[in-house]
Nucleic acid binder design. Sequence first.
DNA 1: CCCATTACTTACTTTTTTTATAGTACCCTA
DNA 2: TAGGGTACTATAAAAAAAGTAAGTAATGGG
Lengths: 124, 124
Amino acid sequence: MGQVKESSTNFENRKIMNDACPEVYAASILGTQWTLAICSYLILGKHRFGELRKKIPGITERMLTLKLRELEQQQIVKRTVFAEVPPRVEYELTKIGKDLAPLIAQLDAWGRKHKKLVNSTKYA
Amino acid sequence: MGQVKESSTNFENRKIMNDACPEVYAASILGTQWTLAICSYLILGKHRFGELRKKIPGITERMLTLKLRELEQQQIVKRTVFAEVPPRVEYELTKIGKDLAPLIAQLDAWGRKHKKLVNSTKYA
DNA sequence: CCCATTACTTACTTTTTTTATAGTACCCTA
DNA sequence: TAGGGTACTATAAAAAAAGTAAGTAATGGG
């Protein structure tokens, strides 16, 4: 829950759902734009900031920064800064981050299946 | 992708990612607010509109309608209208909708684990 | 001294999603 | 004939998320 106003109805609603339903909580973490793409690359291994930016088409530096910071706060990603010039920062998944792998595989499988279904019925 | 402007950068970005990554595509379907909560209830069985509204705390009729329509378009939910007064409309999962069950179970498992971890380190 | 490199910030603007509130149609019952 | 139940719609506003564009810092090399 990035920048949610604690006074908003939206905040209340999410809080209640997230507290009551772990699956909703998990989906709300993974379902925002760019987040899962980043995780998918990090599952393949450690990446520098610039590497991620190059691999993820269309992402801006701002968005990449925001999402990485969010993932870091959520303890899904670990950030390591090297005291060099020019700077070098490496990102890698934490233990729980790595635990996403089978979940991502399932999402992938269901996604393929669904896409296939929808496309096959689109013009039927 | 509910009400996205086809001319926006956002539309372009989502399109590219969704086309390339089925897991991102799947997560973007399941990750928006209310969607997974609705599916979770429907996995338990057929529900009427009003039943869902009562079970899902905080949801407005408008949101419930919107999300159900979206799920219907995505062929995840089937809608059946009975020609009665007062009206009766039933919602149930389609085949691919039911295929979400194991995915939801995994989301649930990961969500619990993550929540536990975050809470345990919060004040450490 | 100027430029390149890398990983960001900052200050906005635009787009998308969610919420609020007030209807509507239909028939049945009291 | 007024009110109740059900499943919605319409319109507007608020909130959240994403995108744009222009910096910044530090240092080594030319």
